[in-house]
Nucleic acid binder design. Structure first.
Ligand SMILES: [Mn+2]
Ligand SMILES: [Mn+2]
Ligand SMILES: [Mn+2]
Ligand SMILES: [Mn+2]
Lengths: 220, 220
DNA sequence: CAATATTGTTAGATTGTACTAATAATTTGT
DNA sequence: ACAAATTATTAGTACAATCTAACAATATTG
């Protein structure tokens, strides 16, 4: 009924619309690396199938049906990533591309089994929440580490969707989810931070990195 | 480079040609449930790509390249089935349809990990051999239980590719791979067998069932 | 606010994978 | 050996998913 291609469009549109509630054909086109006329046509098709609200020259929106469909694909993606890391021994930087394919497998039993084996996890290996069977997601709004101040003590909760390189960088610094980070100082000119966590002291993190790390305040 | 569709054609052709070395467009068409003109066209395309030897009105053959490609897909299929049964707790009757999809995942690392976790298995849950990384398969030619005689003691080694229903039937009789079966008697008119195995005595197996069970002689 | 840049849409072409209908070649059966 | 049945092929259609080129609408900016 719904093709792999259509699923990828829905997922991308879901990501783009999750902040403002709407997105442009142009943004979708760039995100998917597919030319605008193709995207435009697909949006018409998906609106025909009642997944998308499409009106000429207006921003794109997902219908409730579209949001649910997208959430369920994301659920499969994140369950898969968690399974690959927890049960198969992959690193968190290796799993995205595999999950990008496995998320399209049609087998409720397969994902139900994963979920069960994992003990019904709430987040994926990057700290992103796993939508439930009905497509509902509990969105926690964490702070970016880059918005914290000297002296803050925070817990590293999630990485913003980003490159494999960032994840490898974090590996090299032994900076893992759950780490409690104390901000020692913030440079004025480049906003880089010196932080302590675990057994590491005065690690320097660039602002580019800090913007990708989502944290929760722990104590004063 | 090679599509999911093309992979399914190759795999089907591999299965059909594994006995005689060749197959007809008609047979392939029936196996895949795709009309003959479509199959014919695809065979031309696959011969263009050097996977198939196609000549008008001649039987179809796989090239060496085609055989290898098919074997590697079958390798992924069977590794997946084994993983699903051994590591995820699925029944052997549940895994084929899932493997039919997962066999198309493009990720050598994913299947290498499966292989490693499983301890480099040589057969799938139905007793079919798993081709190695180079596409080589060790084919053992077992006997069909239906070809055995009263008094024979045999070991149940594999099930011929068949319906989910047969597998469920075997479940219901607790007849599992590795079971040592003693043939008590064979009915003359319908070739049904009365057999003993494990704690079961005088179980009656129809000829249709016996033709699907592959066995190895154990003792006189 | 008019010129320019950007974004969105339409039209038309291409490729992959399917189909049906018509025709041709091969095989089978009497 | 010929007629009939089966199998294979060709031709033409359709739809999904992509593209480029041309044009239209909207947004930006001097
Ligand atoms: Mn991911
Ligand atoms: Mn995907
Ligand atoms: Mn199978
Ligand atoms: Mn398949």
């Amino acid at each position: 009924m719904i093709s792999q291609t259509e699923e990828n469009y829905l997922k991308a549109l879901f990501a783009l619309t999750s902040t403002k509630g709407e997105a442009s054909v142009n943004e979708l086109s760039k995100m998917l690396d597919i030319k605008m006329p193709t995207v435009n046509g697909m949006m018409k098709r998906l609106s025909e199938k009642d997944f998308v609200i499409y009106e000429s020259y207006k921003p794109l929106k997902l219908t409730e049906k579209g949001r649910k469909e997208a959430s369920l694909i994301i659920r499969k993606h994140r369950l898969t990533e968690m399974y690959l890391v927890e049960k198969m021994g992959f690193g968190w930087e290796e799993v995205h591309d595999i999950a990008e394919q496995i998320e399209h497998i049609q087998s409720p039993a397969f994902f139900a089994k994963m979920d069960e084996i994992l003990g019904f996890p709430e987040v994926d290996p990057h700290g992103s929440p796993i939508p439930d069977e009905n497509g509902k997601v509990i969105v926690k709004d964490f702070d970016r580490l880059s918005d914290c101040e000297s002296g803050d003590v925070v817990k590293f909760m999630a990485v913003k969707p980003s490159s494999e390189e960032l994840l490898k960088f974090l590996n090299s610094r032994e900076l893992v989810l759950g780490a409690v980070i104390t901000i020692q100082s913030v440079e004025l000119f480049d906003k880089s931070m010196s932080v302590n966590y675990a057994h590491r002291e005065m690690e320097v993190l660039s602002n580019m990195v800090c913007e990708k790390l989502l944290v929760e305040h722990v104590a004063k």
